[in-house]
């Protein structure tokens, strides 16, 4: 059956009806960018970065949350993508999560050769995998589950 709801307004995932908002910001991002929560309860969290510990803490926050909540993530793309992946794993749906991404910033690149993830600080077309030192060409394929772009061995097709 088709849903009868209208899509949320662009740039603001907080369509009417939610019962609370969890606002998570990373790095130097201030919370000013967070949309108006329309008088609903708001729970603010700030972290320097999306580390393993940070993500574990978020997981426990999501684990004690109830259906009806919305999530706003603000900060560098690497951090908010990592947090969004945890949110999805905990059962939050894409339409319940708003990403406020800083325009520029480092991104994660996934290496399918050694299965590790490298931070691509310069966001260029190639990056050296920190796991296996392969030069990775960075594709547009983005995994929401990993929060990372797919890389592959650059120049692999050229004669050795």
């Amino acid at each position: 059956m088709r849903s009868a709801s209208t899509p949320p307004a662009a740039g603001n995932g907080l369509e009417p009806g939610f019962r609370g908002v969890i606002c998570v910001s990373f790095g130097s991002t201030g919370d000013t960018a967070v949309p108006d929560t329309d008088g609903q309860p708001r729970y603010d969290l700030h972290f320097e970065a999306a580390t393993a510990d940070t993500l574990l803490e978020l997981k426990s926050v999501f684990g004690s949350s109830r259906v009806g909540v919305r999530l706003v993530l603000a900060g560098p793309p690497t951090d908010i993508r990592a947090a969004a992946a945890v949110a999805a794993d905990c059962g939050l749906l894409g339409e319940e999560v708003t990403l406020l991404s800083q325009e520029t910033g480092p991104r994660f690149v996934y290496c399918p050769h050694c299965l590790s993830t490298t931070v691509d600080v310069t966001a260029g077309t190639e990056v050296t995998c920190h796991g296996c030192s392969t030069i990775l060409a960075v594709t547009d394929h983005f995994s929401r589950r990993r929060g990372a772009y797919l890389g592959y061995s650059a120049h692999a097709e050229e004669a050795a």
Binding site: S3, A4, S5
Partner: peptide, 10 residues
Amino acid sequence: RSQGWSSARL
């Protein structure tokens, strides 16, 4: 919906 359930959950 009034309790914040998004359509994709219903």
